[in-house]
Design a protein around this nucleic acid. Structure first.
Length: 319
DNA sequence: GCGTCCAGGTCTACC
DNA sequence: GGTAGACCTGGACGC
């Protein structure tokens, strides 16, 4: 366990509109940086590694959707240098999507027969980034070929057993392990303890590739073209088309055995009978309809399934 | 209680 | 380049 002290605070002024709660605490329950973060009374306590530095965060909104402002307290073990402070500030601005402009997406979505229903519920929700690429890849691999409950058990076991426990501001938050930590393990140990099955082998291989430092970070992949970023991600062990679409910082359209049913009903009014064979068809249709906004569209649908079911009079399976 | 199937995919061998 | 089959595990289901 690492005890940390408040070292500095700063404000972020995201682009309008920005709904703090919808963005950091998404309706479908997706966490911001770790499943063990704490949200109470409009305040989020969370933690992640920034440039290998364990960083505790206390975030709250001090503005509104139309005049957004986020106050961030930063907790660290040691007093940071000014360069470290800048790295933390810049990275959090990126992760919290402070510069993301929703204007063009909303303009398209208002005219879209499906997305127009989501805008009222999710107005001001932004696309935040994972703690780091390894965390995101771990998430994607644990989703493969498993019901969501089991995926959650695998992820939580990994984080509890191999992640660091950050103690700050009277809270304790367990963070995603770094690749370097998992790279040392044997797949057998990992498989036995967290019941990862064949995924353990992929995770250790992945940890060794990402832990060596030779692979681009999420922020660096963002500088690639979307196609180049995806090609690079497909080089990673255990990462195929579906997972690469989750990892790609440019956004993809990650259709799997769950989302194929949801989008089948939304696009065609019925669940397609082809099962997994329908994935390519649904994926092509989503990209045809939404193009470069496919990922944002996926996000807005995924976080509004209950309301969409009611508005469109169809039953969309909820997680 | 027991056997079978399959789930929010990916990889490999084989054609 | 296209595709069938294997892969961990555990819950659901039929018997």
């Amino acid at each position: 366990m690492m005890r940390m002290t408040k070292r500095f605070a700063f404000y972020l002024s995201p682009k309008v509109p920005y709904d703090f709660e919808l963005t950091v605490r998404k309706p479908a329950g997706w966490p911001l940086f770790t499943p063990f973060e704490i949200y109470k009374g409009g305040i989020l306590w969370t933690a992640l590694h920034i440039a290998n530095l364990l960083t505790g965060l206390k975030l709250r909104s001090v503005g509104s959707t139309e005049q957004p402002s986020i106050l961030i307290d930063v907790f660290l073990k040691d007093i940071p240098k000014s360069t470290q402070k800048n790295v933390i500030k810049n990275l959090l601005a990126t992760k919290l999507a402070a510069d993301e402009d929703l204007t063009e997406f909303y303009s398209m979505a208002r005219k879209d027969p499906i997305l127009k229903h989501t805008l009222g519920d999710l107005y001001g929700m932004h696309d935040t980034g994972f703690a780091h690429l390894f965390a995101m890849a771990t998430f994607a691999i644990s989703l493969q070929m498993a019901p969501l409950k089991r995926s959650e058990e695998m992820m939580n076991c990994l984080i509890k057993n191999y992640g660091e426990l950050a103690e700050f501001d009277g809270k304790r938050v367990c963070v995603w392990p770094l690749a370097e930590r998992l790279a040392e393990l044997s797949p057998n140990e990992l498989s036995r303890l967290c019941k990862l099955g064949y995924r353990a082998k992929y995770l250790v291989q992945l940890a060794r590739v990402l832990g060596s430092g030779g692979f681009p970070t999420l922020e660096e992949l963002k500088q690639f073209s979307p196609e180049e970023a995806k090609r690079k991600l497909l080089e990673l062990p255990g990462i195929g088309d579906y997972s690469a679409d989750i990892l790609n910082p440019h956004g993809g359209f990650p259709i799997d055995a769950w989302s194929v049913d949801v989008f089948g009903k939304l696009f065609y009014g019925e669940q397609l009978r082809e099962g997994r064979a329908a994935i390519d068809k649904i994926k092509a249709e989503g990209i045809r309809r939404w193009g470069k906004w496919s990922w944002m569209a996926f996000l807005y649908v995924a976080h509004d399934l209950k309301q969409l079911s009611e508005k469109l009079g169809t039953s969309l399976r909820l997680y």
